[in-house]
């Protein structure tokens, strides 16, 4: 549902700064679902996630003249993560787990590595088809079919270390390639 696919995020955001609400709804449509799903990685309740994202967009519109937005997508993701962590604290989701997540996530987990749902959806198959088939096989078995490295090693007649190594390499290539897509579209 991208209504201005030819414009990148910052072009649209500059227009929003000048009160263009067509541009605003384009950004909304471009990111709404992805951001709700991103919030879903912290908070499991869809309605809560939707509220969080809607509130972020309201804040964006109200603050369009004062917010220093350099990278729209990063801005969204950071706002969403912080809102989710607050929500988790407030909602007291299994106390210790929430504490633990917010501690490690805020300290180390760098959301720059996170690939949004629709980007995975549209680019994953192409990336997969371009990596060596031995790597791909291990990756698909492990990530999509949920089999452990040990099981894969047994069924393919490979050593455990080989499977682990292939999986590691596959992940590395996929990550780099997806990142390239990300930079190229740089929406």
């Amino acid at each position: 549902m991208d209504i201005f696919p030819e414009y990148d995020d910052m072009v649209l955001w500059r227009a929003v700064e000048r009160n263009d609400h067509r541009a605003f709804s384009a950004l909304y449509r471009r990111y709404y679902r992805d951001m709700v799903l991103f919030c879903g990685s912290y908070v499991r309740d869809r309605q809560v996630c939707e509220d969080i994202v809607q509130n972020i967009f309201i804040r964006l519109w109200n603050g369009r003249r004062v917010l220093a937005v350099r990278n729209f997508r990063m801005f969204l993701m950071k706002s969403a993560r912080n809102a989710c962590l607050n929500e988790m604290k407030r909602g007291g989701i299994a106390g210790s787990y929430a504490d633990y997540i917010s501690r490690t996530c805020s300290m180390y987990a760098d959301i720059e590595g996170y690939i949004l749902y629709s980007d995975l959806e549209s680019n994953m198959m192409e990336v997969l088809s371009s990596i060596p088939p031995q790597y791909r096989e291990v990756f698909v078995e492990n990530r999509f079919k949920g089999r452990t490295c040990k099981e894969i090693a047994e069924s393919l007649g490979l050593s455990y270390r080989t499977v682990e190594e292939r999986l590691r390499k596959a992940l590395k290539i996929i990550r780099t390639r997806l990142k390239e897509y990300d930079d190229r579209t740089k929406r």
Binding site: S41, Y108, A109, D110, I111, E112, G113, Y114, I115, L116, Y117, L120, L171, R175, L178
Partner: peptide, 9 residues
């Protein structure tokens, strides 16, 4: 940290 985020996504 970035890798963790990627795996999470």
């Amino acid at each position: 940290g970035r890798e963790y985020s990627f795996l999470k996504s």
